[in-house]
Write a protein that binds this DNA or RNA. Structure first.
Lengths: 127, 127, 127, 127
DNA sequence: GTGGTCTAGACCACG
DNA sequence: GTGGTCTAGACCACT
C-alpha cells in the first residue's frame, strides 16, 4: 500500500488515491478480503483531509472494488479473477478505442497509427 | 466547420471547440489563411456564451493555430507542413505514452498491450 | 420544488432531499430538462450545509436522475417515459418483495398477507 | 437457532441477530421458556464481538421477547399467544402503511398498488 | 477503534 | 452565477 499523491497535479487528490488503489487491486497486489487502511489513518499518512480519503473510498465502493463493514473497516471486495481481468482489459480497450478515434480525427490513418505504436512499444522493450 | 458540442460532457465546452478546430487544421480541412467564423457568430450557432467561444479562440491563438487580425477576424495561421505534422505526431505519441504507462500500472505487460492494440486496429480495418 | 426536511429524522438529510427530488421526477412534476435549484441556493433555503445538498445531487446524478452542466447548473436528465415507469415500478415491486419475504419469516402466509393488505388499502380508499 | 449474518450488509449485525431471534419467537419455533445460547457462545458461533450479541439480547429484552435470569442464562419470555399475534400483525401493518405512503409519493395510486401486490402474491403462490 | 453524517468556511475552473 | 475540490473540525452508531 504505497500511495503517492501530488498536491499540484491537475488530477484531484481523491482520484489519485482511487486510481492507485484500483490499480493495486487489478494488478493483484491487493487481494479479495484484504483490509485497507482506515480512511482516517490514510488521511493522516497522506497529509490530506479525511473527507478526501473518504471520497476516494466511496468511489471505489460504488465501482464495486471495495466494501465497507460497519464499525470494522474497509475491505477489498470479493470478486472472482474473471471479473478482475474483465475490468483490467475493458479499461485498456476503452483507452485504445479513444486513442484510435482521436487519431483518425487528426487525420492519421490506421496503418500509420499501428506503426507508431509498435515503434514506441519496441523502443520501450529495449530498456 | 461542423462543430458539435455536448453540454453535459465532462469536457469543458471551450475545450471541445478548441479540439475540433485544431483537428480540422491538422487534418488539412482548414488551411492556412482560411477565415474562421466570428466569435459572436460561432457562439450563436452553437448556442453557447460568447465568453466560451472567445476562450476557445484565445487558446488556439496561444498555441499558434490561429491569428487575430484587428477589425478583420480570425484566420488559420501560416505554418508550414512540417510544423503541422510535428503537432500531429507529438499529440499522438503523447497519448500513446500515457496509454503505455497506465497499462503497465494495471499489470499489463508490453507484449500483451501490443497484441491487444494490433487486434483492435485490425478489427477496425475490416469494416 | 417544495422540499421539506426534518433535522431530527433518523433518515439522513441528504437522503431526504434525494428521495423528494427523485419522487418529483418519477411522479412527473419535474420533467426532463428542467433546471434544479443550485446546490447553494437549495442549501440556503433548507438551512443546511452546501455539502449536504451537494451529496444529494451527487447521488441523484449517479443514479441517472439528473445531469450537471459545467458552470451552468443541474438539470433533470433526459430519459424517456419508459425508463421513468420502469424505475417507478421496480422500486415498488422491490418493496413488495421485501414485505412478502419478511412476512413469511414472521410466519404469516401469503393468503393472510393478501387479506391484510387489501383491507388496509380499502380502508384508505374510503377516506 | 440457525442465525445467518452478513458482515457487509448495511443492516447492523446486532439488528440482524435481533430480527432473526424475534422472527423465530413470533413464528413459534422458539417457545416461551426455551433457553437461548449464551451471549458468548453465540458470539463465537457467529464470529462476531461479544458486544454485538450482548446488544442484540439487550434490545430483545427491552422489547419483551426474552428475559435474563441471573447466573442461568437468557430465556424466551412468557407471553400469551395474543400478545405474540399482536406483535406479528402490528409489525406487518406498519410495513404495509409505509409501503402505501411511499407508493403514493411516487405517484402510484391505491388501485394500481393493489393490483401489483395481488399480482406478486399470486405469482408466489404458483411456486 | 471504524465508517456515516454534518458544518462552515475556502479556492478553482467554467460559462 | 455554476459545480468541483478541499480543509479542519464535530457528533453519532456500530464493533
Amino acid at each position: 500500500m504505497d500511495i503517492i499523491i501530488s498536491k499540484t497535479s491537475k488530477e484531484p487528490i481523491y482520484r489519485q488515491i482511487r486510481n492507485q488503489i484500483r490499480n493495486s487491486i487489478l494488478k493483484g497486489s491487493l487481494k479479495s478480503g484484504d483490509i485497507l487502511p482506515s480512511i482516517r489513518k490514510l488521511a493522516k499518512d497522506l497529509q490530506v483531509s479525511v473527507v478526501t480519503t473518504k471520497k476516494a473510498y466511496e468511489v471505489l465502493e460504488q465501482e464495486g472494488y471495495i466494501e465497507f463493514r460497519l464499525g470494522t473497516g474497509s475491505f477489498v471486495a470479493n470478486k472472482n479473477l474473471n471479473w478482475m481481468e474483465k475490468q483490467k482489459y475493458n479499461t485498456t480497450i476503452e483507452r485504445i478505442e479513444t486513442l484510435i478515434e482521436e487519431s483518425l480525427l487528426l487525420g492519421i490513418n490506421l496503418d500509420e497509427l499501428k506503426m507508431i505504436i509498435i515503434n514506441r512499444i519496441e523502443e520501450r522493450e529495449k530498456d
